[in-house]
């Protein structure tokens, strides 16, 4: 017969604590691990006045329907166009859906013919030994182009939101670096000096060997981006600014995306019109083979590396 425990005694037992942990009623780390409390939000008079002024201006310019004729007209046209666009989109999608075969049918082309074609003819048609690369950069290149553009647009948004506009602000932030992280660390600098070149070379290797084995633009670009971040952490903005600024990023990404679009437009054009493409596929397995895939891989790699590095810079302190 089991003994009856009082409330006090029961609270000390393992089963009670286990129960608490299971229910999530008690955080075992609360009070044990050091945590800083969030500062309460305080606003000084000047910023408050500034904010109120801003809000008033926005109200007047964008929402004052009674006094602002421009806003009124815009609002009406906006509604009409929004409804028209929604109807157009819904109609297009419904037409598209009505033409689709039954979902999940085993005889659908997506369930047998597509996969078969990729495996049997992939090497012959794309020239890439790595079938996955052949798929994403040849059969489905349009999808990858969209992905690269998503990265580019995301970086643009982050630049708009986080970039410090004035140069003095950026310089003050840079001088204040000590509060954020150790600066000019000899150990880190030595290791970065040794490891930076191999990391970059490895990233380039992954990009260039994308059509021969595992790898490709996305993974290689991530490796190069990580290498650049290491260099930035070790040597600071003053040194990286010599070869990589926001402007460099914009030019590089734009060139890469434009190159990708042009190259792919060419192959879509020739493919749709049944013209023989002049770009040779080469021997499968050689580094210079598989037609456009190598170029597209390089473009994707450039975009991904730049995106990673710029994201890091922006989230670190809005510099550059």
């Amino acid at each position: 017969m089991s003994k009856k425990l009082t409330e006090e005694q029961y609270r000390k037992t393992f089963s009670f604590r286990f129960r608490q942990w299971l229910d999530g009623t008690k955080d075992p780390y609360l009070g044990e691990v050091e945590m800083k409390k969030q500062k309460p939000f305080v606003e000084d008079a000047q910023t408050a006045a500034h904010r109120i002024q801003d809000e008033k201006e926005v109200e007047e310019r964008a929402y004052d329907l009674e006094h602002n004729a421009e806003v009124r007209i815009f609002n009406r046209i906006y509604r009409v166009f929004a409804v028209a666009f929604c109807i157009f989109l819904v109609t297009m999608l419904l037409i598209g859906v009505s033409d689709l075969p039954t979902f999940g049918d085993a005889h659908n082309p997506a369930n047998n013919e597509v996969a078969e074609r990729y495996i049997e003819k992939g090497l012959e048609e794309t020239g890439a030994v790595n079938i996955v690369t052949g798929m994403i950069l040849d059969y489905r290149a349009f999808d990858t182009l969209g992905e690269s553009h998503v990265l580019f647009i995301a970086t643009c948004t982050v630049l708009i939101l986080l970039r410090l506009d004035r140069k003095e602000d950026r310089e003050a932030n840079e001088a204040d670096d000590r509060t954020h992280e150790p600066k000019n660390d000899v150990i880190l600098q030595t290791v970065a000096r040794i490891l930076f070149p191999p990391i970059i070379i490895f990233g380039i290797y992954i990009i260039l060997a994308g059509h021969l084995g595992p790898g490709g633009g996305f993974s290689g670009g991530a490796v190069i981006g990580a290498g650049l971040i290491l260099y930035l952490n070790a040597f600071g903005f003053a040194k990286t600014e010599k070869f990589f600024t926001a402007k460099t990023y914009k030019v590089m990404s734009f060139a890469a995306l434009a190159c990708y679009s042009l190259a792919k437009s060419y192959s879509f054009y020739t493919g749709a019109n049944h013209i023989e493409s002049v770009i040779p596929l080469g021997t499968p397995g050689a580094i210079l083979s598989s037609g456009l895939i190598l170029i597209l891989n390089i473009c994707v790699g450039v975009v991904v590396a730049g995106t990673m590095y710029t994201f890091y810079c922006m989230f670190r302190k809005g510099g550059h």
Binding site: E181, P182, D185, I187, L188, V191, I194, L195
Partner: peptide
């Protein structure tokens, strides 16, 4: 080799901070 190079350095930075 790579991990033995990098892991002590990152620990060093965390400790220093």
């Amino acid at each position: 080799i790579f991990l033995w190079f990098t892991s002590p350095v990152s620990s060093h930075l965390i400790a220093r901070l």
